[in-house]
Amino acid sequence: MIKFNIKNLNIWFGHIHALKDVTIDITANEILSVIGPSNSGKTSFLRMLNRLNELSENFKMGGEVKFAGRNINDMDAELVRKKIGMVFALPLPLPLSIFDNVAYGVKMYGLKNRKKQQEIVEKALKQAYLWDEVKDRLQTSAFKLSGGQQQRLCIARTLAVEPDVILFDEPCSGLDPISTAKVEEAMLKLKANYTIVLVTNNVKQAARVGGKTAFFLSGELIEVDKTDKMFTAPQDKRTDDYISGKFG
């Protein structure tokens, strides 16, 4: 099943043409890794999917992004962002307690029942493999957690609103190898129930999590294919050069 149809997507920030004519489909329950050097447009592409780019003042777009058959620009922006969650590059807890961080989304959607909130928080923290580490101190500030824990808290916070899709924007760029392994493990388990788009600077990470890989360069989508195929027999020479570390 196709989750996203993206057709001739062009975006600009002021005079900068950040994405050029990108056409790609994203399949449900699969991990799509997006790789490419800095400034290749991969984060802009990711932020397109949940309409975060439009918070920037000088943003313009052309083409269309369809989510489950509907143009996302015809949908309510808040609903799009609820359905399509996002985990940012740096761990960004809100200045609230651990509990309130995870419950933030559902509270904003009007869930007042404390017991229901507790259930949701517990479930989300378990899914993100954080529950055992924080269950005794849910009321302490989220800033007291370590970097890796904070990033898993951010994953739990995203899961708590029960999205269909989770966007990961270089989620391990600030983490050590062990925390990275934990985040990757969480992602692989989540694949069963969610569609995942992972932007990563780490080519090896893309190879590890499997699924499909898309390679962006200077705002253009150069190539997208099954990860195995991409890493063994890339179609484009530039992909080959990037994967084998000749540039980037």
Partner: peptide, 25 residues
């Protein structure tokens, strides 16, 4: 700014973000 972005990315409206994240801080 990142607090606002996170709040919006979780589906909170602009006013909810101001009311619950920006003003208290």
């Amino acid at each position: 700014y990142s607090f606002r972005e996170v709040s919006r990315s979780l589906g909170a409206s602009k006013w909810q973000t101001i009311r619950h994240i920006v003003l208290p801080n």
